Structure formats: C-alpha cells, structure tokens
Lab assay of single mutants.
Amino acid sequence: TTVVVGNKKYTFDNPEAAEKFAKKVAKKLGATVHKTNGTFKVK
C-alpha cells in the first residue's frame, strides 16, 4: 500500500498502517486523505 505525500512516496505492507500514517500526516498538514486504487494521497 502506497501513501503519497506531495512528491514523496511511502510504502507499507499493511494497509491499516498506511491509512493511519496518511491520516496522521494529513492532520498535521491540515490536508485530506484521498484513496485511489489502494493508494492513499494526502493533499
């Protein structure tokens, strides 16, 4: 599962961990999490 934050990509074996990370980053940046085909995008 990939999490994309700006131009950085983070890969997780565990989708739950990926989602948690994405939400944490989004909260910090005041952004939102978008899920597309198993990829979480923070923007």
Score class of each variant (00 low, 15 high):
N14M: 07
K35A: 07
G30P: 01
N14I: 06
K43H: 12
K9M: 12
T32D: 05
F21C: 04
K27V: 08
Y10M: 04
K43P: 06
T2I: 14
E19Q: 06
K8D: 04
K24I: 11
L29T: 05
V33C: 05
H34E: 15
G38K: 05
A26V: 02
A22L: 02
G30W: 03
L29D: 02
P15Q: 09
K20H: 09
K20I: 12
F40G: 03
K9I: 13
K28H: 09
G6E: 04
T36S: 11
D13G: 11
P15N: 08
V3E: 00
K9S: 12
K35T: 07
L29C: 05
T2E: 08
G6R: 06
Y10R: 03
F40T: 04
F12E: 00
V33I: 09
N37Q: 06
A18Q: 00
F12Q: 00
V4H: 09
V25H: 03
V25C: 07
Y10H: 03
L29Q: 04
N37M: 05
V33Y: 07
K35I: 11
K43W: 14
H34F: 12
K20W: 13
K8C: 14
V42R: 01
K43A: 14
G6K: 06
G38H: 06
D13P: 13
E16G: 10
F21S: 00
K41L: 15
V25Y: 04
P15F: 12
F12Y: 04
G38Y: 04
T11R: 14
T11P: 05
T39Q: 15
V3Y: 01
F40N: 03
N37W: 04
T1M: 08
A22Q: 00
K23R: 13
V5S: 03
L29H: 06
P15Y: 14
T1G: 10
K8Q: 09
K9D: 04
T39F: 14
N14Y: 07
H34D: 09
F21H: 02
H34R: 06
H34S: 11
K28Y: 09
E19S: 06
V5G: 00
V33G: 01
N14G: 07
N14V: 07
A17Y: 10
V4Q: 10
A31H: 06
V4F: 14
E19L: 14
K23N: 14
T11C: 13
F12I: 02
V42D: 03
T36V: 15
K23D: 08
A22R: 02
N37K: 07
V5H: 03
T1H: 09
Y10E: 00
V5I: 11
T39E: 15
P15A: 12
Y10S: 01
K8H: 10
T2R: 09
G30R: 06
T2K: 09
T39P: 03
N37Y: 05
H34G: 04
A18C: 02
T11G: 06
K24S: 10
P15G: 07
E16P: 05
V5D: 01
T32E: 08
D13S: 14
F12A: 00
V42S: 02
K8S: 08
T2C: 09
A31T: 07
A18H: 00
F12L: 03
V3D: 00
A18G: 06
F40D: 03
G6W: 11
F40A: 03
T2Q: 10
F40I: 15
T2S: 10
F40E: 03
F12G: 00
G38F: 04
F40Y: 10
G38T: 05
A17M: 12
K20P: 02
A18W: 02
Y10A: 02
T32F: 07
T32R: 07
V25G: 01
T1R: 06
A31P: 01
T1S: 10
G6S: 04
E16A: 12
E16K: 13
P15H: 09
T36E: 15
K24D: 09
T32W: 05
P15S: 10
K20E: 10
K23L: 14
T32A: 07
K41S: 12
H34M: 11
K20Q: 11
K24G: 08
V5A: 03
H34Y: 14
K9E: 08
K28I: 10
V4T: 08
A31L: 14
T36L: 12
K9T: 13
K8M: 11
V3N: 00
G6H: 07
V5C: 06
V25Q: 05
D13V: 11
N14R: 08
D13Q: 12
Y10C: 05
G6M: 09
V3L: 02
A26T: 02
A31N: 03
A17D: 10
G38E: 05
A26D: 01
